[in-house]
Every structure is written in structure tokens, then in C-alpha cells.
Nucleic acid binder design. Structure first.
Lengths: 344, 344
DNA sequence: TTGTACGCGTTATCAA
DNA sequence: TTGATAACGCGTACAA
């Protein structure tokens, strides 16, 4: 079942079939109809492999994320797929498990050949890996492991958003705000930037920074959030609020606080970061930072397609920072409070 | 940069390069080395489009799910990707949004041309759509919308698992067990089967079935679970337990119970279905059915690859039912209780 | 063990 | 407005 068959059936040349299929405008209406009928009768579909071979494109873009079982990345993938679909391309998802080796492998692996470009969200890479990012295909970076890398870059307002989240806790009168999820010794990366925003907010409010309030957590999962929260409580430091550097951590912290029968937000208020859907349904519902996921996805796809469509133009690498907002829910406002989006 | 270039560089024929690339065994060691060096020096990669065109295969399999932002499907996708990776194939995810029209479209759409087969998890299709499933490419069905369809089928033990979940609630002395998520007038589909299991368990225990306890919910999201729970409470029927037909519904129900300050499990015990990661961290942690997700994923990929590898053999269509277990957590055992996996 | 030559289904060029 | 024909890059008989 090829264009030949359709052409034979419609009594035209193969090229005419191709023209019809590709929406070439200068075709006599009667010819077009004939061809379309033949296509319908035969149930013909173009062979994508042949088209790709000829065009030198696949119509597929890659999306590399740590893992889909992390709700933030599942929701991000959802958004990227939708954005890509609107623009007529298909997304091929790769999971790296946030393992450095696998993150590097993604850049050169077999699957790259399937795709015209890559939206890449590394978690384990560090500044020492900047060179690896100098790939010869279109790529858009997500997140903030690497700055000034040789690629377009879409990122969140980590510092400002963290500052606003912390400011929200401060505005409620909290002064002993713990952080869950810090990465010691890291200077780039979401952890470092969000802690930086946290410290900036403390400074704004004239509240001294207390290192004892900073809880480390390598992986940003619920489990590590729960453990870190437990550790902070066991340490006996005074705490009246918690800033989870992402929602999974905050939800883990909530889990521990619940297990220990600590009143949230009565005794300890909690805020997260990401606004995954789950935060609107946890008990209590979780205040968090809404990072503009849809915007990030759409922008990333647009930047990538721009590179794909004009591979030779060397436009300077762009860096786009998405908008954010603070969504305050029960975990800071109190049980029964209606959620509210805070003005910036 | 093609095999020709590599061949020229290595001083061999293009065919020899092809042999090396494809691991053909009868190659002189020195030749292989020469070719490999040329490949490395030139940074050559095979052109997947050309290979696919020639082979008539893509090495890609499709996975159609409602949406990745539903944790169950995100986790399922994760498992399928891993299983596929172990077997050397790549997964292309499609989202249908659980919209019937889009679910049908997936079966015939452009993207089918990218893939060698499809793992298909429809949610909106009904028995009237069985015919649409008679596709001419390898397909494995997930879930239970359609039985006896013309395809391999991997499914959960819906009836038995629901029966066991209900039996667990009964064993705790609960007698007024509400259901959240029923679909009126449906006779196939997870909802119908799980309600059937629920009723079987009631019967086993000699507890009369009360239709007033059955709460409808079209979509199985947290939001609809929350609404349905609210409706049941507003109706004023006596309730001492809730069976959410999936975890999202149960978590939504938990949300409502928390909002109304109902003690769980003191006043009302809750159990869900799916064992998504979130259930281990909710407050209280949620008892649920562990449906053997990994097994489902691995089995589906195996069945699909078997069809792909031997397209002409017409093996009868298989139906595989995955194992399950009940994971009891705080929402039935009480706060602070350690999770336990119940024997069947 | 290696090379030659053809064809996979499309699209692009150019002529008609 | 349409058609003939040459690539696109690779894998596979078949020959050497």
C-alpha cells in the first residue's frame, strides 16, 4: 500500500498523490478529489520512515526527564506533549533516573537519531559537564543545573519564587523557618538557588539565618522529605514553619508532621514548590509555588522548533524565565481556608 | 555523513560498514577495528529513518494512556518504559484524555506509522467499539473496557481484588461500606467489575447491599472523589467505611473527610485501589490494592514483542491476569500502624 | 570474509 | 497543473 497504489487507483502520477497528501495548492479540484477518494478507499497512510528519510527530519522531539513517577515530571511531560501536539510534532520521552551517567548517555544515545531535537531536564549534571552539552543538534535546557551552557534555556524564577514563598511564611509571623531539601556544597542547581531566595527573604525581614534550620535531602522525593523533617524534629531545634524545596519534599514533611501529631499550620506551617495537582488534595492542602509549568513547556517547544526549522541561523542562545505565583492553601492559612493566589 | 563516508575512510565497502554496525559475526578483527575507528573519528551514527524504511520496522512501540498527570498512568508509563528498555525498544507515549473520539483516533492516527505496535489503555471505549480494535498491527490491550476483543489482553484481578479490599474493611467490623466511583449502567469496565467484587464480599459476609451507599463518579480523579464523598455525607446515610474504586478517588474522599473533620479510620475507614506512590505518604496513609503494575507492564511488552517478532503466526489471543495484594495502612489500621501486606 | 547492485516509499527538480 | 526520474541512507541477495 504505497503512493504507487493510490496513483494507479486514481489514474494520476505518484507525484500528484504526494502533492495532494502534502497540501500543495496548485491542483485541479477534480484531481484532488479523485486522489482523496482513492486514499480513502484504500485506507492509505504515508510511510513516515520514507518521508523522514527523504526530508531528513523525523517530526519527533525528545524529552529527557528523571522519572515519570515523580509527579512534577509527569505533569511537565503532559504539558510538553500537549504543546508539541498543537505544533504538529510528537514527543519521545526518556527517563534518566537522575543518574549522571544516564543523563550523559541521553545526549549521544541511539534514540537521538529518532528525534529532531531534545528538551533536556538534567538533575545530576554539574558545571563540569557543560562541555557535554555542546551537541550538534537543537536542544533546549530545562531547569538550572547549568548556566551559560551552549543551548537555549528555560528556567523558573527559583530565587525570586523561593523568596516569595519564604516571605509568605514570614508574613504570617513565622520566624523559625526550616528548609527541607538543601544540597550542601552546591552553588548552582535548584536547591542552591531556592535556598538563596530563602536567605534573601530572611534578610529582607531582618530575621537571622540559622544553619540548624537547613535540612539536607539528596533526592527530592516524598521519602527523603519525610526523613529530613524527622531529623529536624529530632534535633530539637525550634521550628514554626517549613519550606520544602519542592512539593514532594513538602508532602513528605507533611507526612512526618502528621505522624508526629504536629498541628499544621497551627504549630508548623508548610509551603512547597511546584504546585503539582496533589497539593490541592493533601491533608491539609499544601501551599506552594506555581512555577508556570505550561508556559515552560510551550516556550521550550517553541524554542526547540525554532532551532529545528532554522538550523543554520546562529541566533544567540536564549534564556527564558517563566512567571510564578504563590498559591496559599491550608498548610499556611489554616484548615478550611479557601486557596488564594497571592499577588507578587 | 553516511556509511559511504565511513567506508571510504576505512577503505572498505559500505556493506562491511553495515556488517560492523549490525554486529555481523564473520568479520576479520582487523577490518572491524578499522571500521570502528573510522566510525569513531567521524562521529558517525546510523540513519534511523533509512534503516526503518529498509527494515520495515521502527523499534518504537506506542503506549496510549488517558493522561500522564494521573499518577497511576504516569507510574504505568514509567514501568512500561523500563520494561521496553530492557528489551531494546523505545516507547512513544500518546495521551488520549480519556476522550472516546481521541481513543479511536489513536488506533488509526499518523503516529501509528512511527511504531511497530501499540499498548493500549482505553478508558472511554465501550463494547460497541470492539470492531475498531480489529487493527492490522500488533496490539496489546490494558484494562477491562473490552473483553474478547481481537487482541492480547493484560488485566487486573478487578473482581477478586475488590472483593479482598472490601473483605478487609469487613474484617475490621465495618458494615456500612460506601463505594466511591461507580458507573451506573455499565456492565464492563473497571467500575462495574470492582463494584461486583464489592458486592460479592458483602454477600460472603452476609451484609445486605444498600444502593444508597454507592456513589457515582464519572472521571476517576481526586476532584470527583472529593465531590462524591461530600455528596454521600450530605445524603446522611450511615457510613463507617469507604472503598474508593481507585486511589485518586480515595484520596479525594480523604480530602473531603479531612475537610469535614471526620476521623479516619476512627469513624470512617478508607481503602483505595492502585497503590500509587502517593498513598504511602498521604495523611493518613492510604490502604489500597497493589495491582502488580510492574508485572502488567512487563507482560504487555512481552506479548507485544512476541506479536511483532512473529507477525504471521496467528497465535490465539491471550488474556493475562496480574497478581494483586492488599496493602493495609493507616486509613484502615489506625494512625501509627505499620503498613502490612495481607495474605490472600 | 567482503563487495555489487537493487529497492524500500517519499519528496524535489525540472521539464512538459 | 502534472509527470518522469533522481536521490535520501541503509540492508540484503547474490556473487566473488
Amino acid at each position: 500500500m504505497t503512493m504507487h497504489d493510490v496513483a494507479a487507483r486514481a489514474g494520476v502520477s505518484i507525484k500528484t498523490v504526494s502533492n495532494v497528501v502534502n497540501g500543495y495548492p496548485y491542483i485541479r479540484e477534480s484531481t484532488r478529489t479523485k486522489v482523496e477518494e482513492a486514499i480513502a478507499e484504500l485506507g492509505y497512510h504515508v510511510n513516515v520512515s520514507a518521508r523522514n528519510l527523504r526530508r531528513g527530519r523525523t517530526g519527533l522531539i525528545g524529552l529527557a526527564v528523571p522519572e515519570l513517577s515523580l509527579p512534577y515530571f509527569a505533569e511537565l511531560a503532559d504539558s510538553v506533549i500537549r504543546a508539541a501536539e498543537e505544533r504538529g510534532v510528537t514527543v519521545l520521552i526518556e527517563q534518566t533516573g537522575a543518574v549522571r551517567e544516564r543523563e550523559l548517555e541521553v545526549l549521544t544515545g541511539q534514540r537521538r537519531m529518532f528525534t529532531d531535537g531534545l528538551i533536556y531536564s538534567p538533575l545530576a549534571l554539574g558545571p563540569e559537564d557543560v562541555d557535554a552539552l555542546g551537541v550538534d543538534y537543537p536542544m533546549v535546557l530545562l531547569g538550572e543545573r547549568i548556566f551559560g551552557g551552549p543551548a537555549d534555556h528555560v528556567t523558573m524564577s527559583n530565587v525570586e519564587a523561593a523568596r516569595a514563598a519564604t516571605a509568605h511564611l514570614l508574613s504570617l509571623g513565622r520566624r523559625r523557618i526550616a528548609v527541607v531539601g538543601a544540597h550542601a556544597g552546591e552553588s548552582v542547581g535548584s536547591a542552591a538557588l531556592r535556598v538563596q531566595g530563602y536567605r534573601a527573604a530572611l534578610e529582607d525581614a531582618g530575621v537571622p539565618f540559622d544553619p540548624a534550620l537547613v535540612g539536607e535531602a539528596g533526592l527530592w522525593h516524598r521519602a527523603t522529605g519525610a526523613e529530613t523533617m524527622a531529623r529536624l524534629l529530632d534535633d530539637g531545634v525550634e521550628i514554626d514553619a517549613v519550606f520544602g524545596l519542592n512539593d514532594a519534599l513538602a508532602l513528605g514533611a507533611l507526612h512526618t508532621l502528621h505522624a508526629r501529631r504536629v498541628d499544621v499550620p497551627g504549630t508548623i506551617a508548610v509551603i512547597g514548590f511546584d504546585d503539582v495537582e496533589e497539593t490541592a488534595y493533601s491533608s491539609p492542602t499544601l501551599s506552594t509555588v506555581h512555577p508556570g509549568r505550561e508556559q515552560i513547556a510551550a516556550t521550550a517547544v517553541d524554542l526547540l522548533l525554532a532551532r529545528i526549522d532554522a538550523p543554520d541561523v546562529d541566533r544567540p542562545f536564549q534564556q527564558v524565565v517563566a512567571d510564578f505565583s504563590i498559591v496559599a492553601r491550608e498548610s499556611t492559612l489554616g484548615q478550611g481556608a479557601a486557596p488564594q493566589v497571592l499577588p507578587r
